[in-house]
Structure formats: C-alpha cells, structure tokens
Design a protein around this nucleic acid. Structure first.
Length: 950
RNA sequence: AGGACUAUAGCUCAGUUGGUUAGAGCGCUACCUUGACAUGGUAGAGGUCGGCAGUUCGAAUCUGCCUAGUCCUACCA
C-alpha cells in the first residue's frame, strides 16, 4: 500500500467494478427497501445539495443492502419544463434564432438534442459520488412510459372531477409568457413608491371636507386605466355620503362607482382604494362581490366584460383602452407607461404626492420579472379534495417527517391549499390530453381517437389538441409509482411501493412532497382499496451554505462544486470558473478577490469518502449546514488514519498465522477490550441510523477507529507482537483481533465511505477469513452482547489511567519522552496489584519506563511527582528529573480542581432538601464523588506538604 | 401579521427522558521525526451554555418574557 492515502487512485475503478458486477440492482432476496432519487434536472449539473442528498441516500441504501434487504434505489431525471426550455431558448437566441419563428416541432427537436448532449453530465457526476443507484432502471419524466402515466393520471383526475378548466386570474409571467403556480412566485421585499392620485368626483359631489376629489393611494398607478371602482370601508365615517356615487376616472374619463367593502383598511393611506379586478387578486375578489366588470383583453368577446384587460401577453399596454389614449400609451411597457401616466396625471394636477413605500414584489422564480395577475383560461387541479387523505396520512403516522417539525409546515399549507394551476404556455413538457372542436368545446381523453369514440365525433369534425403543457411538478408528483411501471401493475410496483424514505430539502416540500402524497394516494391502492402512501418517511435536510452561512449562488461567486472538493482545483481554474458567464461582469473582480483570499492555494483533492463523511457529520437535525472546509480536511485526515492503520495491520498479519485456519488462540486483555468496545460502537451506530442521525453514526465510528482502535489498541498490540517470548496462541489472538476488528470496522464504515473501505477490505478480508467479491455485498456488523466484557473495559480504564498519569507528569514537567524513567505504585489494593502484574509490559512500553515497582503500604517512597488512579498513587521520583516548584505548581492546579469539586458536592449534600428529595441513587452517587474527591485531596495535599517542606 | 427554527470554546457543531468536572473536529500553546500515520503523536490552555425571570432539591436541558439571526406562509392598496 502507498504510504499516504490517495483517493483518486482508488475511487473511479471501484465504481466501475461495482456497476459492471450488477451490485446496485435489487438482490431479489429479503424484505424490500426502496428509495426514489429526487430526479435532478436532466440538463443540470451537480451542486452541493446533490452531494449532500446523495450521500444520505447512498448511506441508507448501502446500509440496508448490507443488512440483507432487497434494495432498490431508483434513479432518473426530470425534464424541468421551464428551466430547460429557457436554456435552449437562450442558446438559440445567441444564434439569432427565435423560438416562435422556428415553430414548435423544430424547437422540440432542438430541446431533445440538447437533452441528449448534456443529459449525461449529471448522471456521470452522481457516479463520482459513489451513489449505488440501479442505473439499469434509469427513468426520465418524458420517457414513453412515464408520459403514458402522466396522460392516464390527467384523464382519470378529469373523470373524477378533480381537474377542471377555468377562467380566473393567474400569475402571469410576462417574460416567459406562461402562467405559473403560486409556489413559483417569490415575494421579494423591494423599495417602491405609494402614489396618491386624485380621482375627481362625478356630478359635483364633494367630500366631507369640501374636496371635489377622492385621493387613492396605489403602488401600481399604471393599472388605473383598468380601474372598475373605488372602494372605501363601509364604516368609514369620512365617506358615508359618497358610497354609491361615482368617480370620473382620470385620463380615461370613464364613470366608475364608489363602493363599500370591508376589505379596505381605513387606516391605510386615505382609506380609499382603487379597484382593478383584472390586475390584482384582492381586487378580483372585490370585483366579484360587487359584480364589477373585469377588464381583460383575452375576454373581449365575453359578454360579462364591459371593457378589456389593459396588458398584452408581455406586459405592454394593449389597445383596448379608450381610443383617445391609444396613441399615448398603447405598446408601452408597463413600467414605461407608469412613468408616463404619472406625468400626465401630474400635468392635470391630479397627483397629490408620492411616498416611499416598502412592498413585496411578486417575481417569477425562473424569469425574475414582476408577475402580473392576468385573466386567462387554465387547467386546475382541485387540490382540497386530494389534500384530505394526504393530511390524514401524516396525522396518523403512515407518513412521518424527520424531523417532525416539518409536519407543521406541511399541515398549515395543506389545510389551506389553493387549487393548483397545472397548465403552462410552454412547448417543452407533457402536452395536455385535451381537444377542442371549432366551437371551443373541450374533450379530454388519452388520445384523439379515444375522444372521438367516446363523444361520437365523426372525422368531419375538426379537433385541435390543447397547445399547453403540464407543470413539470405534475409528472414529478407521480414519480414514486410511474417509475415502477404504473398504470401497469408490475412486479416492481407491487414489491417496492410504498417506498421507504424520501430524502429531500425543505424547499420542495410543497412543490413536490405534498403533491406526491396527494397524487399517489389517489392513484395507488392496496388490494383492499385503501390508498398507498408514496413513502413512509420523509427525511428533510437543510440547505448547504458556504462557511459564512450565505446561500451558495453563482452571482455571489461562493459556489463550491462537489467535484472540485473531490478532485481538487487550481486557484486560477477556480477563479476562472467562478467568474465565467457572469450576468453582471462588474461582480467578477470582487468575486476573484474574495476567491483568492479564501483559497490562496486553490482546493486540495479530498476524495469522495472525505466529502461524504463530512456531509454525514454535518447532517444534524434538518437545519441548514454551513460547509466547513476545516472539518472536511479533518475527515480526509481520518481517511488517512484508516489507511495507515490498515498498513500497520497488514504489515503484521499478511503471510502470518491469524488463526483463520484454526489453532489455539489466546486473547489478551486489549483484545477482549477492543472487541467489547466494537460491540458498543455497533450498537450506537445501529441506533443512530434508525433515527436518521448520520452525524451520531459518523461520530461513533470516528471515535472508535481513531480514539480506541488506533490510539490504544494498535499501541497495545505492539508489546505482544514484538515480544520474543509471546506464545503462538497469543500472537494468533492479537493478529486475529487486529484483522477482525479492522475488517468489521470497514464494514461499519462502508455505507458512509464506500471507496476506501472497499480498497482496504479486499486485502484484509482474506486474513479475517472472509471472502466475497465486494464489501458492499457483505453483512452489516451486528453487536453481540456476549462479547461485551465489562471487566476488560474496567481493566483497560485502569491501564489508561496509569499511562495518562505518567504522561501527564512527563508533559507538565517537560521530561523528554526519550528519557527512561522509573515509576512506583503506592497505596494500591489487590485489584491494582493484579492489574499491574497482568499489564507490566504494556505499561513499560506505552510510557517508556525504565522500571515499574510496587510499594507496599509500609514501604517509604522517595520524593515524587504524583498522580492518582483511584486511591493508588502513581509516583515518578523527582531526583534529577523534576524541580520542586514545577511539581508544586502542578499539584496546586490539581488541588484547585479538587477543592472546587469538593465545595460543589458538599454544598449539595449539605442541602437537606437535596438529600430528602433527590432519588437515593443520585445522592449516593454524589456521596461517592465527595469521598473520592476528599480522599484524593488528602493524598495530594500530603504530597504537596512533603515537597513544600524541602 | 402568523408560524417555525437557531443562539453552547476563536470557528463548524454534538449534548438522548432535567442529576457530566459541559464534549468533538479545526484553530491555538509547549514538547516530540519512537520501527502504521507530521494528512502524525503527547501534554495543555480555552466556555457564568444569548439575556432576564420562573418551575425544581437540582436547569445547557422544562415554562414565560426579551434580544439577535435564519426561514416559511399570508398580505398591507
């Protein structure tokens, strides 16, 4: 083996090997265990979120696989409607090509080309993470099978009355020219203005204070062209007389009513609100209550509308306004029009004032532009009906969120769920299976033929399929069962559904998790007709942030690429990568500076195992994680520690008799101890995994391997292995323990660190009497209570106490580690003597002693530096080694600690309330503590006095 | 506005049902190339557990209030 751990030398080849051997596929034996990968965007690339997410899932899957389950980790990609279409549109735009000129069919060809050329990126990167997904079952949401499932789901929901087409206000993206769902709108805090406009009263009416106009306050002055009313609060004393009268809408010169509605807050602004039903969700509701005309261009023909919506598809003003205004405003962008309209009102003395005003601006999460409420026909899912069983499933624990806190978030959203707008005016996606005849009547069916048959439509009737596609999340909502072959009742569907765990970020609980639960429970039933949940657990993890806690984003230039952490990257390459294709080039200089400061040497290669172990360690209770390079470096060092421990073990066991072929075996105290500690570690890790506490599992493993196996056991094995007088049985015992504990530890670690464990296991396994192609197919270690050895543990604790005592004296007294020193043990009991006699060689070796002697109580000791192990004194004679003042200082420090302890415990025990009320065993424990501390105090004090008297 | 979460060593984080001398890694100090490992070893220093009150014999842990930060939902024209 190489002297130092070199991750890149081992990782790639092992992954290929596993995949080629078919180890990732379900074994077909054992209880099923299934995880569905949250499908990444097909044209996307790996980020830290994927790294974290995949680490958790792969750890679970490898663990369950080793525990003998029939595991399926189902991979696949999402077509990501808007995101992908935008990318391709941008590419075409760079070549001066417009999607609309190109036409739907040609454009879709381009998208498929792009999907083919870039679709392998993400899957290749997922392989680098070591993810043991079953690639033979890879699915894509636009695959034929999944598309069938989507169509089937749509038609059935429609048949069940749970999908309908409706005309209402939607969130309209004027840049992408599509409707989007509420969830795709981000409300951003922005600075804006509140314009106070004067609306003249009609018919010579005046306000209570004699004005001939009302003042309305608005953040959107340009929408005044579509105003249908002015509203005041019904109880507002200022305006009682005006309710029912009319306003002459400025510029437009249309008469609009003054209405009363308790939606208005009297305290805000002037208490007068302009009502624009076609451009504001609240105004829409007010308008409906008062039968106000909706003003919208698309419905110019609808009789219900007196006039039209003032915006075009792209947010420019349309020509439906009063003819006299067309020349002034039509065709202007909404924000240009705003300035113009405000200026024109000002010119007419109709602008009262402009106040600064903070507001939440609705912006499209993809396009970033201000979303416009717009009246159109769209398809909706009646979510409240589907939500009911979905809420119950979480309430009664059929689905459990980890951490449980997220259930509140789920409930609060689900209990007030709005209908879900699922149609998108895009081209890339599943086209809606609905057809229209020439009169606009709509028919839903699996295909045109079915529609014609079902509705008796002859070939003379022309049918046109709906142009729109479905929201990407509609197909994602079917993910757990569509990937298993639904609507066919496949064996896989029967075996692996419901799946076991969904691992995902909190940010898509609504987008995805909630909708999956609703869809799945509607479509997938048990034999007795009860609904199946998509998964039994939802493990919710936080966002991966940078070391300062900031969200990683390209524009901030703080993005870490998991592959750069695995492979390393030169500083210049990192700078180039972070500053490439900046939307705002001026940020590049800042990002470059910041990057050079944070990574002056670039990023070293840490390897996949270190990255994964870091993710596990940071995976605490569902909160965001600040990614800490220092911590990852520590875990890379941990890999190196394992590597070198293995080198030591192999060096001492290869081509040696490790007892695997039989022969007498004698286990030393250290052997029995490490085996015992191993059982406890196995217990801890099992518990941690059962509770999804990957951090605790990682910690238990780390502590066992480093602090117990390496720090103590390997050191304790040396005196045996290097003892010329050791018996064959003793040698076999130690070699066998070395190898077996290492081999077991590798299996314990494998789910978290697959590569290094496989590499080492291949060499260690035969020595431990194990065979098999791969560690990943071996059994996961299970604790054996019979091998927990409390006596051995206590004996080693004693041994460690003596060793640490001597080391402390050496360290504090600056005695060179090379110096052989004598040690005396005094005031010990029979147990101490037994332990000394059994462990003399260990003590000498571990602390580099010249001699170690036992003093009977009546024997005088030379003046010595002292440490206590229980009542026994560990003495290092001072002559020539230790100066008086140093030892007095050291003792003072010890005595200070003890007197604090005594004071504290005495205080407790002198408190009658404590003694009366606390449980007896707690009192006894405190008493024992006090006895120990006072005894120690006395011992050290007498020692102190002796030395001080010199 | 409502809700959730977070606050523990210089930094990143553990701390299980209230009972520890409050822990780990990194960083820091001193010493050490001893035959697995300097990506190492040994010994140390470092915390009134955000603040205030309360419950209790006993609070980092439970309750209330406050402060700071993060996030979610709804929304103020």
């Amino acid at each position: 083996m190489e002297k130092t751990y070199q991750p890149h030398a081992i990782e790639k080849s092992w992954y290929q090997n596993w995949e080629q051997q078919g180890h990732f596929a379900p074994s077909g034996e054992g209880d099923p265990y299934c995880i569905m990968i949250p499908p990444p965007n097909v044209t996307g690339s790996l980020h830290m979120g994927h790294g974290f997410n995949n680490t958790i899932m792969d750890t679970l899957i490898r663990y369950q696989r080793m525990k003998g389950h029939n595991t399926l980790w189902q991979p696949g990609c999402d077509h990501a409607g808007i995101a992908t279409q935008m990318v391709v549109e941008r590419q075409l735009a760079a070549q001066g090509i417009n999607r609309l000129e190109m036409g739907r069919e040609k454009f879709l060809e381009k998208v498929w080309e792009w999907k083919e050329s870039s679709g392998g990126t993400i899957t290749g990167q997922i392989r680098r993470l070591g993810s043991s997904v079953d690639w033979s079952r890879e699915r894509f949401t636009m695959d034929e099978g999944l598309s069938e499932a989507v169509k089937e789901a749509f038609v059935r929901l429609h048949e069940d009355g749970l999908i309908y087409r409706g005309k209402r206000l939607v969130n309209w993206d004027p840049k992408l020219h599509t409707a989007i769902s509420d969830l795709e709108v981000e409300n951003v805090d922005e600075k804006g203005s509140l314009w106070h406009l004067r609306y003249p009263l009609a018919d010579g009416a005046t306000t209570a204070d004699g004005q001939s106009y009302l003042i309305v306050a608005t953040t959107r002055p340009e929408t005044m062209l579509g105003d249908a009313a002015v509203a005041v609060h019904p109880d507002d004393p200022r305006y009682q007389d005006l309710i029912g009268k009319e306003i002459i809408l400025p510029l437009v010169n249309r008469r609009i009513p003054i209405i009363a509605d308790d939606y208005v807050e009297q305290e805000f602004g002037t208490g007068c609100v302009k009502i624009t039903p076609a451009h504001d969700f609240n105004d829409y509701d007010v308008g409906k209550r008062h039968q106000l005309p909706l003003i919208n261009v698309l419905d110019r023909d609808a009789a219900m509308l007196a006039s039209a919506q003032i915006f075009n598809i792209d947010g420019t003003l349309n020509e439906t306004m009063d003819a006299s205004l067309v020349a002034a405003y039509a065709g202007l962008d909404r924000f240009v029009a705003r300035k113009q309209i405000v200026a024109d009102l000002d010119a007419q003395q109709l602008l009262e004032k402009i106040d600064d005003h903070g507001l939440k601006t609705p912006r499209g999460d993809r396009s970033g532009v201000v979303i416009e409420p717009w009246l159109t026909d769209q398809w909706y899912v009646k979510a409240s009906t589907l939500a009911k069983p979905a809420i119950e499933a979480v309430e009664d624990g059929r689905i459990q969120f980890v951490p449980k806190q997220y259930e509140n978030m789920y409930f609060s959203w689900m209990r007030d769920i709005q209908d879900w707008c699922i149609s998108r005016q895009l081209w890339w996606g599943h086209r809606i299976p609905a057809w229209y005849d020439e009169s606009g009547k709509v028919y839903v069916g699996r295909d045109e033929a079915e529609v014609r048959t079902k509705h008796n439509l002859g070939s003379e009737i022309a049918l046109r399929q709906d142009d729109d596609v479905l929201d990407t999340w509609f197909s994602s909502g079917l993910w757990t069962f569509s990937t298993l072959g639904w609507p066919q009742q496949t064996d896989f569907l029967k075996t692996f559904h419901s799946t076991d765990v969904l691992v995902t970020g909190f940010d898509i609980i609504f987008f995805w998790v909630a909708r999956m639960i609703m869809m799945t429970m509607h479509f997938v039933k048990n034999d007795d007709g009860t609904p199946q949940v998509p998964f039994k657990h939802v493990y919710v993890h936080g966002l991966v942030r940078d070391s300062l806690g900031h969200k990683m984003s390209k524009s901030k230039g703080n993005v870490l690429d998991p592959l750069d952490l695995i492979d390393g990257i030169e500083l210049e390459d990192l700078v180039a990568k972070r500053t490439a294709n900046m939307m705002q080039p001026k940020l590049a200089a800042k990002i470059e500076k910041q990057t050079r400061k944070e990574f002056p040497e670039g990023i070293a290669s840490y390897g996949t195992d270190a990255l994964r172990f870091t993710f596990c360690s940071l995976a605490t209770t569902g909160r965001d994680i600040k990614f800490d390079m220092g911590r990852m470096e520590g875990y890379r060092n941990f890999c190196n520690k394992i590597w070198n421990a293995a080198r030591y073990v192999l060096m001492n066991t290869e081509e040696q008799d490790c007892g695997q072929k039989g022969g007498d075996v004698e286990l030393s105290l250290a052997d029995r101890w490490i085996i015992s500690r191993l059982q406890r570690t196995e217990q801890q890790i099992e518990k941690a995994f059962a509770e999804f506490r990957f951090d605790l599992a990682a910690q238990a493993l780390f502590e066992f391997i480093w602090n117990e196996y390496c720090d103590w056991y390997l050191e304790l094995s040396k005196p045996v292995l290097w003892d010329e007088n050791a018996s064959e049985a003793q040698l076999r015992g130690t070699r066998r323990t070395l190898v077996q504990v290492l081999e077991t530890s590798l299996r314990l670690a494998h789910p978290m660190m697959p590569f290094i464990t496989e590499e080492i296991w291949q060499r260690v396994a035969p020595l431990a009497g194990q065979d098999g192609q791969s560690i990943m197919m071996q059994a996961y270690p299970e604790a054996n209570d019979a091998r927990i050895d409390a006596v051995a543990e206590a004996d080693i604790e004693w041994l460690k106490g003596v060793i640490l005592g001597v080391r402390n004296i050496r360290g504090e007294m600056n005695i060179s580690p090379a110096k052989h020193i004598p040690v005396l043990l005094q005031n010990g009991d029979d147990q101490d003597l037994r332990r000394l006699n059994e462990n003399r060689p260990f003590l000498r070796k571990m602390t580099n002693l010249a001699s170690i002697s036992w003093l009977n109580t009546d024997e005088a000791a030379p003046l010595s530096a002292t440490q206590l192990v229980g009542d026994m004194r560990v003495l290092v004679p001072m002559a020539g080694l230790i100066d008086k003042e140093a030892e007095l200082a050291r003792l003072t420090k010890e005595l200070d600690k003890l007197s604090k302890e005594v004071g504290r415990v005495e205080g407790k025990l002198n408190n009658p309330k404590f003694v009366d009320k606390a449980p007896a065993e707690v009192v006894a424990k405190e008493q024992a503590k006090l006895d120990d501390a006072t005894a120690a105090q006395a011992q050290l004090q007498s020692q102190f006095d002796k030395i001080a008297a010199l």
